[in-house]
Design a protein around this nucleic acid. Structure first.
Lengths: 185, 185
DNA sequence: GGTGTCAAGTTTCATACGGAACTAATTCCC
DNA sequence: GGGAATTAGTTCCGTATGAAACTTGACACC
């Protein structure tokens, strides 16, 4: 009964013709216009085209792996966060974050001070040098976003920001596993 | 001068208060409402909450790694695609796709036939068994998208689909590296 | 105030991953 | 038509990664 609903993203008649007309790879056009899972494809495709260039640049310029920079960036937004919070908000497993934290401490980009009250966890804080790196990196990141969002009008950008925010806000209500289909029982 | 522009996604006054009111992790709220790079965060966060559950399920139920399933799914949309096209449309490096293809051939989920005309490349095609798996997996994938998009009205979903599509269409015009800032020269 | 359960972070270990170099086929172009 | 430059795909190899097990501390419960 949702046959119509799942076709929301598939309103272009002919992916091949569209691809030819827009300099788009034919398979990309198919995934864009003839894909029942239109949402996840667009999400992943766009995320990819942000992450690749940006983390490539950071890696090359500062020698930081992606999880390391994720920690740094998280602290630049909220200094004193714990490894746990960073892990959950970024989606990297806590083991990966733990390693990143150690590496950043060795490089004196962050400091770890025991949390008063709970001796299992630690406040993580940027050093001056760590802050310098996040400051310096913000410009190219913003520039990349600007570039990617350029096709939209300001009103459209605002609309997009709102729609995505609505979804993020709802995330805590989502189950963290896909239910096995009824045939599996 | 774009100070305003980059604050598009940051229109909520107090992330901490918002988090408390919505059962949202405080760091997530900060990344949502006090983050100059609002776009990439929302993109990655949502992609993550699709990929994790869905690929976890596929891995568990069918023993397929993510790149393997990406190949399978790509062929379910456009049978006869080449490894190259799959690599570029999915963002996985060609070496990873190559390995996935080999594994899928061994498991008789796809077949490889030499491309008439260019003997370097191969048409990849689903076997009946491969098709069975993509058919069977589509339901939980659609269900996950439905769940994630549930907070939006049909009109909003349509709007979101359109906005994201506009961006994907523009992707071929994006440089594939972030320019080094002027201070780097 | 012990005992069992849970949570933050670390260590261990097997492996999936992706960059660099390679092979083979194609295209360019003089 | 023949050599240079490109392209599809594979192989090799070092390593970043994440699941499972572990450590240490908090908290519940009686």
């Amino acid at each position: 009964m949702d046959a119509l609903e799942s076709r929301i993203g598939m309103l272009w008649p002919d992916a091949a013709a569209f691809a030819a007309g827009h300099g788009l790879d034919p398979l990309v056009a198919t995934k864009l216009w003839e894909n029942p899972c239109w949402f996840s494809f667009r999400l992943n495709y766009l995320a990819l085209h942000f992450n690749g260039p940006v983390y490539g640049y950071i890696q090359e310029r500062h020698g930081l792996m992606r999880p390391e920079y994720v920690v740094l960036y998280s602290l630049s937004l909220k200094d004193g966060s714990t490894a746990k919070a960073i892990s959950e908000s970024s989606g990297f497993p806590k083991t990966t974050i733990s390693r990143a934290v150690q590496s950043l401490i060795e490089r004196r980009l962050i400091e770890r001070t025991p949390d008063s009250g709970d001796r299992r966890s630690f406040r993580l804080e940027l050093t001056a040098e760590g802050r310098r790196i996040t400051d310096e990196t913000l410009t190219p990141m913003l520039e990349r976003e600007r570039l990617m969002l350029a096709p939209l009008s300001p009103a459209e950008r605002f609309m997009l920001a709102e729609l995505l925010a609505k979804l993020v806000v709802a995330a805590p209500t989502w189950p963290d596993a896909v239910l096995p289909g009824p045939a599996t029982v």
